[in-house]
Amino acid sequence: MPYITTSDGTEIYYTEQGTGRPVILSHGWPLSSDAWQVELKLLADAGYRAIAHDRRGHGRSSQTYSGNDMDTYAKDLAELVEALDLTDIVLIGHSTGGGEVVRYAAQYGVGRVSKIFTAGAVPPIMLKSDSNPEGTPIEALDAIREGVLKDRSQYYKDLSVAFYGANREGATVSQGAKDDFWRQGMAVGLAAAYDCVKAFSETDFTEDLEALTVPVFIAQGDADQIVPIAAAALKSIHLVKDGTLKVYPGAPHGIYGAYQDELDQDILKFVGE
């Protein structure tokens, strides 16, 4: 399996399929590059070099105790890009991965990144505050940490329901999809899973979004139960210079079902423009 070793000795796993213009996909919490299997094939079939990595602490990458923060995630991605010597890159990030690609692009990607696509992404900032009343209360984030610490296996099973919107009337989410969410979640080191909650919820990406000069496609479902759309996509679109916003009616946070079909077509169109 392909790995790079970062400057602090962390092994980052990545997978790639196809040849052509590079497209890098960054996964959400608590998943891994496995979450992008469908998109990897679709992009490779369309003539692109599709690359997805496991964030440190997640999947097959090193089970790190330190560095589980957004600055380090972005630096890890920069080292992967440099190791593979990639240019003219399209970045795609879901949820936490949306934050990672935005920070990477703003701080490391000038001259390498040509486009960015985010879906259900955490920028500009997820945490509720006086200046961000639409955000997620700290009590809800503390509950995530408590669930991960006390019984992460059951917690991931429970979380998969809201993640994919399986609790909504008329939802048809397979048991297999929920099981795969659990499988990927159980591969995350406990320290990394715990620390990443702070990374995805309390990092302020406002300046990163404002620094972007490349086209940015911002996608989010209006039935997202994980990342509040009013604190995320609906604010991010006003911070980027060259942005396109698409809201998917009834779509959940997790990329699945009819939402995945439509999102994937939008990805292919955006990458090909």
Rank of each mutant, 00 (worst) to 15 (best):
M1T: 12
T6H: 09
I12R: 00
T15D: 10
L25G: 08
P30T: 03
A35Y: 10
V38W: 06
K41V: 12
L42D: 09
A44C: 13
A50K: 08
R55M: 14
R55S: 06
H58F: 12
T72P: 07
L80D: 07
L84G: 06
L86V: 09
I89H: 00
G98E: 03
G98R: 06
R103A: 10
Y108M: 12
G109S: 12
K115A: 12
I116R: 02
I116W: 00
F117T: 11
A119P: 05
G120M: 01
V122Y: 03
K128V: 02
S129P: 05
P133M: 05
G135A: 00
G135R: 00
V148C: 09
R152Y: 09
Y156K: 01
L159E: 15
A166M: 02
N167V: 03
G170C: 05
A177F: 00
D179A: 15
W182C: 08
W182R: 13
M186V: 03
G189L: 07
A191M: 13
A192R: 04
A192L: 11
A193Q: 12
L212K: 08
T213M: 05
V214T: 03
A233R: 14
K235V: 10
S236W: 14
S236N: 14
I237P: 14
L239N: 13
L245P: 14
G250V: 01
Q260D: 14
Q260Y: 08
D264S: 13
D264C: 04
D264F: 10
Q265H: 06
K269R: 09
F270C: 00
F270E: 04
